[in-house]
Simulated scan of single mutants.
Amino acid sequence: MKTSDFYYDLPQELIAQTPIEKRDASRLLTLDKHTGAWEHHHFYELPDFLTEKDCLILNDSRVLPARLLGQRLPGGGACEVLLLADRGDGVWECLVRPGKKLRPGAQVSFGEGELTAEVVEEVEGGNRLVKFHYEGIFLEVLERLGKMPLPPYIKEELQDRERYQTVYSKELGSAAAPTAGLHFTKDLLEKISAKGVGIGYVTLHVGLGTFRPVKEEEILDHEMHKEFCTISREVADLINRTRANGGRVVCVGTTSCRTVESWANEDGTMEPRSGWTGIYIYPGYRFKVTDALITNFHLPESTLVMLVSALAGREHILAAYEEAVREQYRFFSFGDAMFIH
């Protein structure tokens, strides 16, 4: 298949720049994966589409305020460092700007010297290994000095950075939010639980590779990025019980979907596991666990459009996206949602 098979035309003005006032007031396009039939709803209606036999699987990863703005030493030229992965002993793999000025040996200061750093190595792909120096707890320093690493298509400044976190976020480690979960409120989760729906949390730390465009003409030539994910004994058991009782496993977001599909056995049973996954899901993939998916609208020609096309069929997805454009849905991270069932 060609990457261009997953293109759709999106007017720029439909890319949501800010979150709407109430999380669950976003719109919800429901899509029947078998027939391609769609309906227009709102996210607060989600409990109507779930039954007591179902379980909901959410990603509880929390976004690091991983964007640091500082000055190069000496001289004070502005620079930006974006944390990608913790390599241990105060060393992080980072994206840096300006790259030409931040070669190994370069010194940087943040927050008037509260945090300093040295570039120690350039690694494959142009990223840098950066050694940080600070007093106290690094994550607390980061909470004070760091900014949210919003996707490149969002140009507006985020007023309340908790709006780029899910209300159930817990495990700090993502470079981007698992955005399908941004629509949930605590009240909505309580309504879903009161209906008898099982709720389980997995963890997948979202990397910036999620925004990396597919540049290859053939989708099979694309190298998928890797992300760390975990599924507990409790959640594995919940999924196994749900399937045994004839219920549906409803994944919230492509990250939850990739986690359960990464660690599922061939017969769809789950066991607790953790590790790095580079699972690449595109049409032709046989889902072992995921029966339904709650997801946002994704970038044209992205691996995420390929994933939802694998679940619902490329023609059904592209037709639904065309309908969403016609109806002026909001797209991408702060946009509206789909329920593929």
Rank of each mutant, 00 (worst) to 15 (best):
T203L: 04
E156M: 15
L69Y: 08
E301W: 03
S193Y: 14
T18M: 03
E114P: 00
V252M: 04
T290M: 02
K170W: 12
L50A: 02
S61D: 05
I231K: 01
I281T: 00
T203Y: 13
T303C: 02
I317M: 03
V119H: 02
I219C: 06
R243N: 13
R144H: 06
L238H: 10
V63W: 08
A176K: 06
N240P: 12
H133A: 10
T18P: 07
M306Y: 07
A180Q: 13
Q328R: 11
C94Y: 02
S109A: 01
L182H: 09
V308I: 15
L189H: 11
V289R: 02
G284K: 12
P272A: 05
C229E: 10
L69T: 04
T303P: 00
R330M: 04
G99C: 07
G181L: 07
T290C: 10
G209V: 01
K53N: 01
K191I: 15
Q328G: 11
T290Y: 05
V96T: 12
N127Y: 10
S333G: 11
G77H: 09
T269C: 06
Y164H: 02
K226E: 13
L28P: 07
A85V: 12
D5E: 15
A106L: 03
E322D: 11
L68Y: 07
T166V: 08
R97D: 13
P213C: 10
G209Q: 06
R326C: 03
T116M: 14
A244M: 05
A319G: 09
L58N: 05
T295M: 04
E52A: 04
G105D: 07
C251K: 12
R212D: 14
F334D: 06
D336Y: 11
T51G: 04
K195T: 03
G247N: 01
L29N: 10
R97G: 12
R286A: 15
T18D: 11
G247V: 10
H183M: 09
L10C: 01
L182T: 10
F332Y: 11
D48N: 07
K101D: 02
L189V: 15
L58K: 04
A175E: 13
L64V: 14
G126H: 05
T18V: 08
Q12K: 13
E315W: 07
P47K: 05
L46I: 14
E171T: 12
Q71C: 03
G111W: 06
L145N: 08
Y8Q: 12
T295Q: 03
I20V: 15
H42Y: 15
I340T: 03
Q159A: 14
P11W: 05
D237G: 03
G268R: 10
G200K: 08
F184K: 10
G146H: 03
A292L: 09
L58S: 04
S4E: 06
G181M: 06
M338K: 09
A236N: 14
G313M: 11
E162F: 07
Y280Q: 00
